[in-house]
Amino acid sequence: MVTIVVDTKEIQADDGKSVLQTCLEHGIFIPNLCFMKSREHPHASCRLCFVEIYGIDQPVTSCTERVREGLVVLTATARARRLQQAAFKLLMSAHHCRPKACPVRGGCQLIRIARHLKVGLNSQPLERLERAIDEEVDLGLFTYYPFRCVLCGRCVHVCRQRTGHNLLTFAGRGLKTVVALFGGGDLAAAPCRHCGACATVCPTGALVLKGEQGRAASADSSLRAPQIPPR
């Protein structure tokens, strides 16, 4: 155990654990989408969890920083906020927010983040991006909605971890990057035992089990991330 300071609050933390996880466990919210405890190496792709750390001249992603004795973390500096808000605006410019059709009832992580960052769900001053990709992709057991997807990679990770098969993967380049089945095909025929973990971990309802309007009915609550702060 080491002692770190987060926004003037002293915290006893496990040496070597990520700053993001430590903060979340101590009830200090830092926006995040791609973070998962079970990842050995942080994915660090959503770029939302910026903080400032004393002694480092630039804001850094808190998921990639490890806790060590005497660390001083500031989660709400102007520079960190600017990057968090910029990343969020960028995500929202490519994410189609349609509350009525959204399967993530109530617990949308994007709404939580917007509230935390004190920004709206629009992407102003950036325009909405149009993309030449399908609105809906049939993956057999699941339907994939590329315009909801924020490419956090949680489904890809959990699929690899649970099934050992790496059935889900990223495909395409640039803004056309999507989540897809490795080599095409559909999940109904895949050796994944239909665990549904991929749909459960999705923070934006981009991967939905067919026949379910809401989240996949996995009993496994440990997957039921992302970490949502108390209101």
């Binding site: 990343a87 380049r173 640039g174």
Partner: peptide, 21 residues
């Protein structure tokens, strides 16, 4: 750059497309 972005991180994937637009 925006065509060759691997698509992993938000800034490069979406940000470079905005710059291009």
């Amino acid at each position: 750059t925006q065509k060759e972005s691997c698509g992993k991180c938000t800034f490069c994937r979406i940000g470079t497309r905005h710059l291009l637009n």
